[in-house]
């Protein structure tokens, strides 16, 4: 427990000194704020682009607040996950690759504490970044588009947050499994993408898949409820996160250093 605190403090310090605590939340905030702004000014943008034939009036219905917020989540699913994977990919592999791990693991340290601290800091970074971005998106949506049901917005955010935690867990697992940063990013991103694509194509069979979470989150916003698979997807995701964690502990212990 004492070692967990030590490791966690070190991770926080590193994330601060490498400016990750600054740029990841800011990029998320940017992503969140963009969607409502772009939606609000879409008619003007189209007009300025001048591709419309003269005389054609732009008939565009302004979407509802809930719709814009759901679109924002769509943004996070593409670029948000990419940013997360890129900022987390070397968390375990980097220390093994550089060689610091040799000095760390020759001390009487617990591998569980080590991995748990990585996990906890991953969760912290994701929660803060997504929280900030989502809050920004929400505020801008209410200001520029229209009101959103508070309970639905919070519930949707929590489902989506779980999806991001899942993606982060996946990245850390691959970071414990392999060394090349590009490989980790590719595989983690690919797996997350595949899961959410698979749900899009086979919603019936993948109803409990973690890949259903983004859709569930959107449904909560638009329809007020996530549908029948919600509970299953929730439990399966948490179960997988636990499995990933155990796997990462095991792999970190097995591949203590690079030889």
């Amino acid at each position: 427990m004492k070692q967990f605190g030590l490791f966690f403090r070190k991770e926080m310090l590193e994330m601060g000194r490498s400016y990750r605590w600054l740029w990841v939340p800011l990029v998320f905030l940017m992503l969140g704020v963009m969607q409502p702004i772009v939606t609000r000014f879409m008619p003007e943008i189209l007009k300025a682009a001048g591709n419309m034939p003269k005389g054609m009036t732009i008939m565009m219905e302004m979407p509802s607040g809930a719709e814009v917020l759901a679109q924002t989540l769509g943004q996070y699913n593409a670029i948000g996950i990419l940013i997360l994977v890129l900022s987390l990919m070397t968390m375990i592999s980097g220390e093994r690759q550089s060689g610091v791990s040799q000095m760390i693991f020759s001390k009487p340290v617990s591998f569980v504490s080590y991995a748990a601290a990585k996990w906890m800091s991953m969760i912290s970074l994701i929660t803060a970044s997504f929280g900030l971005g989502y809050a920004g998106a929400w505020y801008y949506t209410v200001q520029m588009i229209g009101p959103v049901d508070t309970a639905a917005a919070v519930k949707a955010a929590l489902f989506y947050l779980l999806w991001m935690w899942f993606a982060g867990s996946l990245t850390l697992l691959f970071s414990s499994l392999m060394n090349p940063a590009a490989g980790i990013a590719f595989v983690s991103l690919g797996a997350a993408l595949l899961l959410s694509l698979a749900y899009g194509m086979l919603p019936r069979y993948m109803a409990w898949s973690p890949g259903a979470l983004p859709q569930i989150s959107a449904k909560v916003l638009l329809q007020g409820s996530g549908g029948t698979g919600t509970m299953g997807a929730l439990l399966i995701t948490i179960l997988f996160m636990i499995i990933f964690f155990v796997g990462a502990v095991y792999m970190t212990q097995r591949k203590r250093a690079r030889f």
Binding site: L22, W23, L26, L29, M30, V33, M34, I37, Y140, Q143
Partner: peptide, 12 residues
């Protein structure tokens, strides 16, 4: 409402 975007970009 747009100024914050510019501020974010500047900070980064």
């Amino acid at each position: 409402l747009i100024a914050p975007l510019i501020v974010i970009w500047l900070i980064l």
